[in-house]
Simulated assay, not measured.
Amino acid sequence: MESGKAQIDCPEPSVIPRVSNADKISLRDIARERVDIVSEKMHNLPDEFLQELKNDLRVILDGANGSQHRDEFFILKKLVQNRSNLTAKTLIRAHRVQLEILVAINTAIQGFLHPSTSLSRTALIEMLVYKRCINMACQNQLPPINCTCEKCVNDNGFCNLCMCMICSKFDFEVNTCRWIGCDFCSHWTHTDCAIVEQLICMGVCTKNGAGPSEMVFRCQSCNRTSELLGWVKDVFQYCAASWDGEALIRELDFVSRVFHGSTDPQGRKLFCKCDDLKEKLKSAKVDSKAAYTEILMFFQGKSFLVYLNCRYTQYFCEYTLK
């Protein structure tokens, strides 16, 4: 007790280690400086500072500050991609956070900076040198050993299991009409990319040989065609039950755009049915459950089955006559 006041014991505040300007490193340092030099500096820096570096990169990848962040990201990416000294041998000496930042810059994927990311150092190194798929849900070894197409052989980092043949990007919109798979070589293509590149058109399905013209997809990998009517039927039959109204409208819109130029009777019927259901859903005349049931009834209807039976009967007869 001094001066009539009581002293109250308070816990000491946590002390964050201070980092001198000489010891600090920047994202640009990580992107351009030698791996071993940056790694040594990072081992002497507190974890709080390293996490702040990752947060700074997350903000840049978000692009919230418009052109300034975009310009900074392009500078960082150019610095990384122009380097010839990022090899499996040199990257062994890298700090883990250093690897995470380099991969995030090279791929523009924020997930590599998330605290819960549990990728091994080996996986991060292989992603940087294009020996492993950068899709964390895939991580397939590259280049694919089961494919010798030009895309798989020549495009560093391309994965035939999860990436689009046109744009080389992946996403998590699987089990939807937004991806089309080739029936023969199992490569995948975004539906939007296929439409833009005019890979969806009227033609004859390779698997069925000579037959009536229908809407088909031509694969850029093997140049063979896959029919699209059965593809849409399978997607709706096995995946659409969990879609809400908005998701169903989006998927119906994809199908409408795929079959917009169809001239065969069943393709035109599917196009009209999708447009009709979209309008009913938007005006709340039907709910998603009723719309889902209606599209399934379309595929299971007598006209659809008769169409398929006639088509395959024609194929069989033509093949037998040959």
Rank of each mutant, 00 (worst) to 15 (best):
215 M>W: 00
101 I>V: 06
131 K>L: 11
71 D>I: 13
26 S>G: 07
242 S>Y: 13
255 V>L: 07
113 L>T: 01
255 V>N: 01
128 L>F: 05
134 I>A: 03
268 R>H: 08
134 I>D: 01
253 D>E: 09
9 D>N: 14
296 L>F: 04
46 P>W: 02
52 E>N: 12
144 P>C: 06
263 T>Y: 09
284 A>W: 15
157 G>F: 01
151 K>N: 10
16 I>S: 11
259 F>K: 03
50 L>Y: 00
42 M>R: 00
278 K>A: 12
192 D>G: 08
140 N>L: 07
219 C>P: 01
309 N>Q: 14
66 G>L: 09
28 R>G: 12
37 I>H: 15
83 R>H: 13
108 A>Y: 03
267 G>E: 00
214 E>F: 01
44 N>W: 10
66 G>R: 08
268 R>S: 07
163 M>C: 09
167 C>K: 08
61 L>P: 05
65 N>D: 13
122 T>M: 11
81 Q>G: 14
59 V>G: 07
8 I>H: 11
209 G>E: 00
214 E>T: 02
312 Y>S: 10
155 D>S: 15
117 T>W: 05
40 E>L: 09
183 D>M: 06
118 S>C: 14
95 H>Y: 09
277 L>G: 02
24 K>M: 05
191 T>H: 00
112 F>I: 06
75 I>K: 07
120 S>Y: 07
156 N>C: 14
196 V>P: 12
236 F>R: 01
106 N>R: 07
94 A>L: 07
15 V>R: 14
295 I>F: 02
180 I>K: 00
178 R>L: 04
102 L>V: 12
51 Q>L: 11
35 V>M: 04
287 D>L: 08
73 F>L: 13
1 M>E: 06
243 W>P: 00
47 D>Y: 02
279 E>D: 13
186 S>P: 02
274 C>R: 00
319 Y>C: 13
298 F>M: 04
123 A>R: 08
46 P>T: 02
10 C>I: 12
132 R>N: 04
185 C>L: 06
71 D>C: 15
125 I>A: 03
146 N>A: 15
